[in-house]
Simulated assay, not measured.
Amino acid sequence: MSSLRIFDIAASAMSAQNTRLNATASNLANVDSVAASPEQAYRARVPLFQTVMDAAGVAGVRTDGVVDSQKPPEARYEPGHPMADAEGYIYAPAINTVEEMANMISASRSYQNAVDVMSTSRDLMLATLQIGRS
């Protein structure tokens, strides 16, 4: 395995965690949004990842896209709300703020770990070059 392959692996991890952070940020930004119908309600964004293997058996990660959650929106009975339907309901996204915050912390730490892997690999490569100069 090429010693430079570690940078590709770490970069794929950083890209995946960036997608995860963006989806979480979108979910948290829309947690208090409401709609007049279930079809118009915001649906939480969920990134899809896949492990990819190269010919040498080295794994990386690929983002297959971001899909909408299948959880139905929450119906809230608020007949005085300007967006209430004929029965007096408004519809809010089914987003758990605590889960989203935990997801954000996990993605942030995973991203930082990938940055640390790249930094350590660079430092080790530079140290190896210094040994060769001696």
Rank of each mutant, 00 (worst) to 15 (best):
V31Q: 13
D32K: 08
S33E: 10
S33M: 04
V34K: 05
A35L: 10
A35K: 06
S37E: 06
S37Q: 09
P38T: 14
Q40D: 15
A41C: 10
Y42G: 12
Y42A: 11
R43P: 13
A44V: 05
A44K: 10
A44W: 03
R45S: 13
R45N: 08
V46P: 11
P47N: 06
L48A: 15
L48K: 14
Q50D: 13
V52L: 00
V52C: 01
M53Q: 00
D54V: 01
D54S: 01
D54G: 02
A55F: 02
A56T: 09
G57H: 03
A59V: 03
T63F: 01
V67N: 13
D68M: 04
S69M: 04
P72W: 08
E74M: 13
A75T: 08
R76I: 12
R76T: 09
Y77S: 08
Y77V: 09
H81V: 03
H81C: 08
P82G: 06
A84T: 08
A84E: 03
G88M: 07
G88L: 06
I90E: 04
I90R: 05
Y91D: 02
A92G: 08
A92L: 10
A92Q: 12
A92Y: 00
P93G: 10
A94F: 01
A94W: 00
I95V: 12
T97N: 04
A102W: 04
N103Q: 12
S106A: 14
S108V: 05
S108F: 09
Q112F: 13
A114K: 05
A114H: 02
D116A: 13
T120M: 13
L124V: 07
L126R: 13
A127Q: 11
A127T: 07
A127E: 07
T128Y: 03
T128K: 11
